[in-house]
Design a protein around this nucleic acid. Structure first.
Length: 274
DNA sequence: AAACGCGCCTGCGGGC
DNA sequence: TGCCCGCAGGCGCGTT
């Protein structure tokens, strides 16, 4: 899936398409997602004006005039395509949204780790999907002081720590590797062993890499596509992710691949010392 | 109670 | 060519 920059990019595309419109009908083609798509989705959401299109963590939260919220998560392979007329559907399409202006949105998800549902209450914190989520990485609350405070007593490896959604949301497997490289921190270093100065730097680099990726329209690897079907561009700027055995951009040492918590991690063993 | 590891599901590419 | 295995932007759950 899409990590935070990809979801933010989707949000930015959807906002002008949706804001002020309403859903005329939402057709469920296949309800079998991470949680089943509720039968009454269309009934609950249709014909209520769309007020806001937002992102929280890696979720899209689309607020309607009747206080309900359409919630979409793209999982690993979820995609949303926009069309100006009735599109052909393929076997991994799960929902087809028809807007009052005749546009369509198509939700496609090969691996079905995504979800589409609604909330009756627009206070996201009341939902089980959102209640446990930590702060946003691009917010002012996410700063070196905060990160050091929550990490200084943890022996969890730093890459796992920053990917933990209760600590900070939206930092996925790619951007965790990239931010640690930029910060010259070994991904296996215990969180407690990172100085305030290095923590400040890590926060700066997490924000920097996410913002840069957003500015490039996210990263396209395999399945992820922009709403328009175009690719994002940030994948061309990866310094470590997927670069096993390629020379480090700084010192030319071959990039190493290890596995942490079942996820691949890429880093430079020379630049990123423990 | 934090932390691990597994399962959810499908497709693709590499190795044999 | 074909089969089998490992791996993939995430996340929640049960178990230690």
């Amino acid at each position: 899936m899409p990590e935070l920059p990809e979801v933010e990019t989707v949000k930015n595309y959807l906002e002008p398409l949706l804001k002020g419109q309403s859903f005329a009908e939402i057709e469920i083609l296949n309800p079998n997602l991470r949680i089943p798509v509720p039968d009454d989705l269309s009934e609950k959401l249709a014909n209520h004006k769309i007020e806001q299109v937002t992102r929280r963590a890696k979720y899209l939260a689309i607020y309607l005039e009747n206080n309900s919220v359409l919630v979409i998560h793209l999982g690993m392979t979820g995609k949303i395509f926009a069309h100006q007329e009735l599109p052909d559907t393929d076997k991994h399409d799960h929902l087809l949204f028809r807007l009052n202006n005749g546009d369509y949105l198509r939700f496609n998800d090969v691996r079905k780790f995504g979800l589409v549902t609604y909330l009756n209450d627009n206070d996201l914190t009341k939902s089980k999907l959102f209640s446990h989520l930590g702060i946003e990485p691009l917010s002012d609350e996410f700063n070196g002081k905060y990160l050091r405070e929550i990490s200084k007593n943890s022996n969890l490896e730093i890459k796992k720590f920053i990917m933990e959604q209760k600590n900070v949301v939206g930092v996925g497997n790619i951007y965790a590797s990239e931010a640690l490289f930029l910060s010259r921190i070994n991904p296996t270093r215990p969180s407690s062993k990172i100085s305030q100065k290095d923590t400040d730097n890590l926060v700066k680099n997490i924000k920097g890499v996410l913002e840069l990726a957003i500015s490039k329209g996210g990263s396209t690897i395999k399945d992820y596509r922009l709403v328009t079907g175009e690719s994002g561009y940030f994948q061309h700027e990866f310094k470590t992710y997927g670069k096993e055995n390629n020379p480090c951009k700084i010192c030319s040492t071959p990039i190493k691949k290890i596995v942490q918590g079942g996820r691949s991690t890429f880093y430079c063993p020379k630049c990123q010392k423990n």
